[in-house]
């Protein structure tokens, strides 16, 4: 029963990502959308990569939100870019989603 965790708030509100990571289980995935796209920047994602790795959580970021913010070429290599169809695909390959905001 894997969960897709969807975060939409910027790293400026760290408690939201904190909560998401605390409640995640092994093999869950994390999708960064809207202002959470900024988490994809190397300096912000590096603060949580060890925890993500420990839980074997894959990180995805929504392409449209990255491009909109001018950061699609600046993101950390561990992050996979998905478009809206990829977003849909993620919701089919996970049993449920939890939106943290």
């Amino acid at each position: 029963m894997k969960t897709l965790h969807i975060v939409n708030k910027s790293p400026e509100k760290p408690s939201i990502m904190e909560r998401c990571l605390n409640f995640s289980s092994k093999g869950d995935s994390l999708l960064l959308i809207e202002d959470a796209a900024y988490f994809a920047l190397p300096s912000t994602i590096s603060k949580i990569t060890s925890r993500l790795d420990a839980l074997q959580i894959k990180i995805y970021a929504l392409e449209e939100d990255l491009v909109a913010r001018g950061i699609n070429k600046k993101i950390h290599g561990s992050i996979q870019i998905v478009n809206y169809e990829g977003f849909v695909e993620l919701t089919t390959t996970h049993n449920k989603s939890s939106s943290w905001y």
Partner: peptide, 19 residues
């Protein structure tokens, strides 16, 4: 907020993929 436009785009992608 972006909430509605994100949901709109998601809905379009759902329909496009036959859901």
């Amino acid at each position: 907020t972006q909430s509605t436009t994100t949901a709109l785009n998601f809905t379009k992608a759902l329909l496009k993929n036959g859901h």
